[in-house]
């Protein structure tokens, strides 16, 4: 379970002065559900997810992951979250297996327990063949599999994916989406950001549209279609964003 209420993040920057990257955003996502955060580039998706993963501290507002507050218990939150984003690369000089085991150890796993979990993950992701190759020498698709194994090694109840399919080819992207669906089936709470509407339509139970740091609308797909008199998420999104631009 993830609960976000009124979080904001401001940066002060020499060029723009005080800049509100995320402004008063609230949403919640239950176990076994996928919440999609939609928005264009620079809308505030990544900043929001980084706050949930405790990489950034909210300037205002609260957010909790499985009951742990991101600001006051960041380490407990990180222990319950699997975080995957465009910015989370692999250690190129470690092998795929070493990479995953390293994160397992940081999560407190060790010995036979760790080996068993890593075995199961590599088996599941069909990554056994390249588990002893250095991450630098893996293809983009292989790397994404290793990253997924890395986020899952501690079997977290909450998964946060920031544009997980960007830069992947069709087949790999499909596999990643299938895997996100699988997380839901296993009862995990999934937060997922994208700017590709088709992905959101296929996957999400609930959707929030974020624009210029503000959550402009949210609800289930059906609710959004009804509210805006459309049957296509892209149309809903464009309507919401242009309405904001005019206002």
């Amino acid at each position: 379970m993830v609960e976000v209420s009124g979080i904001s993040k401001s940066f002060s920057d020499r060029k723009r002065g005080l800049f509100h990257a995320v402004d008063d955003v609230s949403f919640r996502c239950e176990e076994g559900r996928i919440y999609g955060l939609l928005g264009g580039n620079g809308a505030g998706k990544t900043t929001t997810l980084r706050m949930l993963a405790t990489l950034l501290k909210p300037t205002r507002g609260r957010a909790s992951v499985d009951g742990f507050d991101v600001a006051s218990a960041p380490e407990a939150v990180r222990a319950r979250v699997g975080f995957l984003s465009g910015g989370t690369a692999l250690y190129g000089r470690l092998t795929a297996r070493e990479m995953v085991e390293y994160f397992g150890r940081l999560h407190g796993l060790r010995g036979a327990d760790l080996a068993r979990r890593a075995d199961a993950l590599f088996e599941n992701l069909e990554a056994r063949d390249f588990q002893d190759r250095r991450c630098d020498n893996l293809s983009t698709g292989m790397k994404q599999k290793v990253s997924i194994a890395r986020t899952l090694i501690h079997d977290p109840p909450v998964m946060i994916f920031d544009e997980p399919t960007s830069g992947l080819d069709v087949l790999t992207a499909r596999a990643v989406l299938g895997f996100i669906r699988e997380c839901r089936e296993r009862g995990k709470t999934v937060i997922f950001s994208t700017h590709i509407m088709r992905e959101a339509e296929k996957l999400c139970d609930n959707v929030g549209v974020i624009h210029r740091g503000r959550l402009v609308d949210e609800g289930s797909l059906a609710e959004l279609y009804e509210r805006h008199g459309e049957s296509d998420l892209e149309e809903v999104f464009v309507k919401l964003v242009t309405r904001e631009e005019v206002a």
Partner: peptide
Amino acid sequence: ERGTMETILSSPVS
């Protein structure tokens, strides 16, 4: 530079 800082910071390591 290699983008692993965000990865390691998202792990529970203090």
